[in-house]
Design a protein around this nucleic acid. Sequence first.
DNA 1: CCCTCAAATACAAAGGTTTGCATAAACACA
DNA 2: TGTGTTTATGCAAACCTTTGTATTTGAGGG
Lengths: 345, 345
Amino acid sequence: MKRNITIKDIAQLAHVSASTVSRGLNDSPLVAEETRVRIQKIALEHGFSFNTSARSLITRKTGIIGLIYPEHFNEYQHSFYLTLLMNKIRDELEEHEYDLVVKFRTNKNGTVNNIRHLVNGKKVDGLILVHSKIEQEDLDFLHENGVPFVLLQARQYYVNIDRENWVFVNHRKGGYIAANHLISLGHTSILCMMLDSPQYQFTERTEGYKQALQDNHLQVDEDKIVLCDGTFEASFNFITEQQELMKQVTAIFAQTDIMALGAIEALQGLGLSVPKDIAVVAYDDIEFGKHFRPKLSTIHQPRDQLAVLGCERLLEMLDSGSTNPPMQRLIEPYLIVRESCGAER
Amino acid sequence: MKRNITIKDIAQLAHVSASTVSRGLNDSPLVAEETRVRIQKIALEHGFSFNTSARSLITRKTGIIGLIYPEHFNEYQHSFYLTLLMNKIRDELEEHEYDLVVKFRTNKNGTVNNIRHLVNGKKVDGLILVHSKIEQEDLDFLHENGVPFVLLQARQYYVNIDRENWVFVNHRKGGYIAANHLISLGHTSILCMMLDSPQYQFTERTEGYKQALQDNHLQVDEDKIVLCDGTFEASFNFITEQQELMKQVTAIFAQTDIMALGAIEALQGLGLSVPKDIAVVAYDDIEFGKHFRPKLSTIHQPRDQLAVLGCERLLEMLDSGSTNPPMQRLIEPYLIVRESCGAER
DNA sequence: CCCTCAAATACAAAGGTTTGCATAAACACA
DNA sequence: TGTGTTTATGCAAACCTTTGTATTTGAGGG
């Protein structure tokens, strides 16, 4: 790799010192207008670029943000989290000259803590933690090291959430809207297919469901709240094996789109029509929701809003070293009515 | 941010010089076994990590690979490229201690050439260019700067492709398989919905289609090769407006899954059944293909293979500074038979 | 006991920037 | 003309490693 042109080279060419060049290129007011212009012209002509490493070494800024996803995704999570979140985030950050390093919480084998890896190596200026089951002690670690970070999309079971910066979706509200919609369509016996993962966001969706029943003076029947893995197959198998249960309900609230898909296919296998025999409301609103048959009625998570708010706050922390009170935003999901719920449109 | 512990600190604690510490931590044979162990123990106890910037400055390696995607994706491309390619790539590279910076070819406004940005700033050690319409002069630029890179997924119109390292999908073969399958099912009048973008890969898919017809002694009818934007809507509208054409064909080869989806919905709107009245073979094999109705018969692109081969080669170039002859692999797509083609399974 | 040689360690420069402080030049004012 | 101020520039240290070369130490051979 050929030797690159440095500030010293420019200095020689412009007959000034390296420090003046540095100031000139950084638009410092300490350097005379005329000199600045000359320096910048020469730099441009010679295709000069700062050496990022040298710069980082002294400024202690890398210009890189780490985007941390949870454990390895299954395909469904891929399409939900990666697809939609990442681009918006990248755009936002790029506008402020930050690059984005994407990682999971740990490496493939789970032996490396990528968060500490990034921070210890001084590889990043800040972090965006997407729905990641970060250990409490990792959060503490980040605070100790003064690393700015925001939590995105879904709250976890942290002891001291008030101290953190976050943008979460109001999943309780999401569950509420889903159930309430089905009730408003006349359903009184609604199965809640809860995603079987010890995450706050899923208990919240269920809490919302319960609340909606109660607000409508319906009995909450624990037998109608079932746990199921968040995959197509698990959901399909569950419903297929629960023919009896299906006779007792007229509607299903599935806690992800993919679970809804599995359920719907299973119902059809049982000779039941969706939404005629059983109505279904899903959750997440993946991009293909409108292409399935029936088209999925589902709860939309405002992903772009998550990204924009989160990035804004992170950027603010990055350049003010801000000790402002933390930003904590709960954003509202909403229902998209298509076909699977059986509502007239 | 608190001051971090450095090699000098460790040196003091271990009563040796900084250079010995450096060598010790890097497992150099120049340092005595006993000293090495002592140094590493102390480093571990004090939570030492190398400062990446300082290290990069002198070694001229950043430990970062740039993953470059084309222009901003539409939603469909997202789910195809990001979802599946990125994770495999990330895993492969992470295993060799590389981090991944993800970027588009240019920034949001198209004003910044991100490739040059990364290279000039010495931010990356190498690049993976996914199906990116890189300008010829950018490739030249990379060669001039001795930056290792691989081209992935789809060939573009480059003048000197023999010089590059690449892993492409054999899209001509893909088109051939699609058409040939339909022919083998008895279809003789097959519409080829070609994606309207001046990219090599789509002309190739069409070439394969033509070749299949010829090999089966069928006339290639240019009227049955139509251009269409690669979106659901464009495809839907096109078919809806071409009722006449639909009477002349019994099958469609759609060059992406999303185009197939649009076509199928349009056909159903026209009262035509898929695959009974019109058979459809799609292309790409997105993860949700099996959840649509009918389930999509489609050409699968072996994405993981792309990622693995590409990364392997890149890593090889990175640590050997290899001037080996370039690696050029054409990998074979294959047909996945589901429902939309109407074949017995 | 001296010399040579190998092994282990230390020294110092280099990598490319930024930045506090010193210096020089220019100017104003008395 | 001298003093004081402002403005523009230069000097040199610092950031933290790596690495070529020099130095020290100790062992072994004569």
